[in-house]
Design a binder for these strands. Structure first.
Lengths: 225, 225
DNA sequence: CACAATGTGAACGGCGTGTGAAACGGCGTC
DNA sequence: GACGCCGTTTCACACGCCGTTCACATTGTG
């Protein structure tokens, strides 16, 4: 119900308005980002759609304003015409997605839906996924490639922490601090045993997801470069 | 820098190939995700571009495969035609961005650039770079001109220290103190052996990056004067 | 040419890690 | 309160990597 988009400019492009209305999205148009706070809904803006068609310079300014707020407006969809594609370069941080106008109404719907899904996932991750691994944080269930894993509490916590930072290496010391707690005082070999059990439960096929870095620690998966 | 994209299907759409070639992106086409590991570059795939135009069902299957790997392929750009936009619904997790074909070559360029930028900044690049050399301090990965190096702990530490001060010459004594630790007491020739192994692993092409200064010590790279 | 410094190959051995099993401790049941 | 179960921690031992050292070859320098 409280889907409220910010639109630029005011008045917005007719085809944009038409599609939003048909899709059931509410919107508010503006020409200046400064006075946005006055009309901002309590739940915050759902996102922004900025058309750079008419006044590109001002559109970029609006984007910057929207991004500079205490709570940046996300997602931000940019509408450009074909000749403006080069302008996107070196401005990657100012928008989340873009679309070439004139556009297909269904494309706008699809992009908005996908953008909302993406930010929704980012803000409140109730599941952590990495490759074949999937951790449901609400139900404490874990599975690899569809097969559920019967993990104990500590095993789950360790795997969750590793999967939250894929590719990053953690020393046993760090793992003890972050997973077991700062007040924990015990042997570092405890980590080894839990890693061993995790590998066993991951199965031979996925055991290598947790890698050992000799005289350093452990990491889950690999990040490229 | 080896930018290597995975393309589906094989052969890929001609306009896609043409644009990628013109933009200077390397690519590999495939019809099955299973045999991808055989041709995967050492540095991993840069991303994937899946065309759902010809065979939508198989395209979705490919997307799932690419996402379920131990190292998920990211970013994944989906190519659809206008009538397939509805199929995107409820499949948000299978792609990062989509584009309607036929497409404007500049749009493809812009989307790829923005996608690469996004995934690139997603992981905070805590890396040391010097020339073709690149050290990821978080994952303890090292590579020269795209090829990963399989370094041991001490080799990595030594290379990291040298790369942190490019062009500067260090005596064996200094290296022992700074890399091995101040309390270390052992023969200085240990450094020589590690330098030798580093040179070997750097490959003949880059072995000269570590230079010997007779009766002084070692340095990495050239000091510019 | 002589000597020193460095490169090279190989071998030793310590130490980090994997592995199996036992001990510990909390918690619920009888 | 005694017992047993289960998750966790600790211990002991074996294995193999890899850091270190040595002997010898090669290169460079006065």
């Amino acid at each position: 119900m409280t889907e409220q988009f910010v639109l630029f400019p005011d008045p917005p492009p007719p085809d944009l308005v038409r599609t939003l209305d048909l899709s059931g999205y509410a919107w508010t148009a503006t020409n200046t980002a400064t006075d946005l706070s006055d009309v901002e809904p309590d739940s915050g803006w759902t996102g922004a759609i900025v058309s750079a068609d008419a006044d590109p310079e001002k559109a970029w300014a609006i984007c910057r304003e929207l991004r500079k707020r205490d709570v940046p407006v996300e997602p931000l969809l940019l509408l450009v015409n074909g000749s403006q594609l080069e302008e996107l370069q070196a401005r990657d941080e100012l928008f989340d997605d873009f679309m070439i106008s004139p556009f297909h109404p269904r494309e706008l719907e699809a992009r908005l839906r996908h953008l909302l899904w993406r930010v929704g996932r980012g803000v409140r991750p109730d599941v952590i996924e990495y490759g074949p691994l999937s951790l449901n944080l609400e139900t404490y269930q874990a599975q690899v490639s569809g097969h559920p894993l019967d993990l104990t509490f500590m095993e789950y916590e360790l795997l969750k922490f590793l999967a939250s930072h894929p590719g990053k290496v953690f020393t046993r010391e760090t793992l003890l601090n972050r997973v077991w707690g700062y007040e924990y005082y015990g042997g570092a070999r405890t980590v080894d045993v839990h890693v061993r059990r995790l590998r066993a439960k991951l199965g031979e096929e996925h055991a290598h997801m947790i890698q050992t870095l000799r005289s350093v620690g452990y990491k889950l998966g690999q990040s490229r470069w």
